[in-house]
Amino acid sequence: METLRVLRQRIRSVRSTQKITRAMQMVAGAKLRRAQEELMRSRPYTERMTGIADRFFRARPEESHPLIAGTPEGDGQPAGLVLISSDTGLCGTYNERVALAALGFLRENPSARIVMIGRKGQRILARNGFKPVRTIGDWGGRVDFDRIQELAGWLETQFLSGEVGAWWVATTRFVNALKFQPVVERFLPLGGRPAAKAEGAGFPPLPEKLITEPDPQGVLEELLRRLTRGRFQQFVLEAFTSEHSARMLAMRGATDNASEMIETLTLVMNKARQAAITKELIEVVSGAQALQ
């Protein structure tokens, strides 16, 4: 029967789609695990660095730097926004959500310079009439530390030369494998001395003197260079981990939907087959009766 064959074909095609989505789910799962490990491994470094910065600023409260307070040239200059999205799709609402957060920021800062990481976000911004000054479309969710450093250095240069008044980053915070949160956070200037909020928070008393080599300004430069790069790397790592998590969830949803569809189609097919058998039986029986 015609419909029976059509139904069988549909089930076959849904089944092969399911195989693909299941494979993609597993690939995303493996990538998620790796990204999560990278995120965890980088955490001790970031924590130590923040600790050193904290102690340094408490021992040397007089030291300041444009990376903390902003540059005089950058005053009144447009802000900049770095949007971290994915290069490939099939990751549910991941890109839409972070782009929505970015668009909210851009509505308030229409003259902002935009730097794009990821092709998908760029497409969404283009649809809304925003053009990036720089686009990176080939990271593919893989973390390359050298390229992250290079980009962070470029952002820092733009900021220090006063081209951009402040850098913001639209990224996605990784909460856990099932949950992630798009955010827009300020990247540069780093803002109020990191130690200010720690005052009187039960920290051990300051060392009365802190030796700095070669000199406080030299240490500060190195410290801030590391702080900015570390912070930026954290933004990227969080976003990429969230991306893999989003893709895994989307693909799991697709696989489940395919299972449901196969079930429904099988039911319909069984009914059709039963109907065909019944019809044939009636034909045979009524044919026999006609002969009597």
Partner: peptide, 13 residues
């Protein structure tokens, strides 16, 4: 830099 036990607090590049 040479560092032994009980070195004074220091930050260096």
């Amino acid at each position: 830099l040479g560092i032994l036990r009980n070195h004074a607090p220091m930050v260096s590049t």
